[in-house]
Simulated assay, not measured.
Amino acid sequence: MPNQTTFTIKLETELKDAFTKIAETEHCSVSQVMRDLMQQYIERHEYKHFLEDKVTSARASIANGQSIPHQDAKAIFKTRREKV
């Protein structure tokens, strides 16, 4: 990691002790676990926005008449499944 910084947080002693103990039993540093948790949080946030954008786009398509009825979609995918 070329650019590193220190991140300080306040938390309950019991939480810190339990967290540290678990990290040690898994042979991981607390720093590594925190990096992993932060990365997962970022990825979850990005995925949430990705889904929101997809829904917004789909709703716009429907509003613009660029969709097909549900029964037609079912029939199209039934045909595709049968080909496989």
Score class of each variant (00 low, 15 high):
1 M>W: 03
1 M>K: 07
3 N>S: 13
3 N>H: 12
4 Q>L: 09
6 T>A: 09
6 T>Q: 11
6 T>I: 11
6 T>W: 03
6 T>K: 13
7 F>C: 04
8 T>L: 05
8 T>K: 06
8 T>M: 03
9 I>R: 01
9 I>V: 15
10 K>M: 06
12 E>W: 01
12 E>L: 06
12 E>R: 09
12 E>M: 02
13 T>D: 13
14 E>A: 11
16 K>G: 00
16 K>Y: 11
17 D>V: 05
18 A>E: 06
18 A>C: 04
18 A>S: 14
19 F>H: 03
20 T>Y: 02
21 K>A: 15
22 I>C: 02
23 A>N: 06
24 E>T: 10
25 T>Q: 15
25 T>A: 08
25 T>S: 15
25 T>N: 12
25 T>G: 00
25 T>M: 13
26 E>Y: 08
27 H>Y: 08
27 H>S: 13
28 C>P: 00
28 C>V: 06
29 S>L: 05
30 V>C: 03
30 V>L: 11
31 S>I: 01
32 Q>F: 09
32 Q>P: 00
32 Q>I: 01
33 V>R: 02
34 M>Y: 02
34 M>R: 00
34 M>H: 00
36 D>K: 06
40 Q>I: 06
41 Y>T: 13
41 Y>S: 13
41 Y>H: 11
42 I>K: 10
42 I>S: 07
42 I>N: 07
43 E>W: 01
45 H>I: 04
46 E>G: 00
46 E>N: 10
46 E>R: 10
46 E>Y: 06
47 Y>C: 01
47 Y>Q: 14
48 K>T: 09
49 H>M: 12
49 H>F: 05
50 F>V: 05
51 L>T: 04
52 E>Y: 04
52 E>A: 14
53 D>T: 11
54 K>F: 03
54 K>D: 10
55 V>M: 11
55 V>N: 07
56 T>K: 14
56 T>H: 11
57 S>Y: 10
57 S>F: 10
58 A>M: 14
59 R>Q: 15
59 R>F: 10
60 A>N: 13
60 A>M: 10
61 S>P: 00
62 I>S: 04
62 I>Q: 09
62 I>Y: 07
62 I>P: 00
63 A>N: 12
63 A>L: 09
63 A>W: 00
65 G>P: 01
65 G>W: 05
65 G>Q: 08
66 Q>I: 00
66 Q>H: 13
67 S>A: 12
67 S>Q: 04
67 S>I: 00
68 I>G: 00
69 P>K: 08
70 H>K: 07
70 H>L: 12
71 Q>H: 07
71 Q>N: 09
72 D>R: 05
72 D>E: 15
75 A>I: 01
75 A>T: 11
75 A>N: 10
76 I>M: 10
77 F>Y: 14
79 T>K: 15
79 T>F: 04
79 T>Y: 04
79 T>N: 08
80 R>K: 14
80 R>Q: 11
81 R>C: 01
82 E>L: 12
82 E>H: 04
83 K>Q: 13
83 K>G: 02
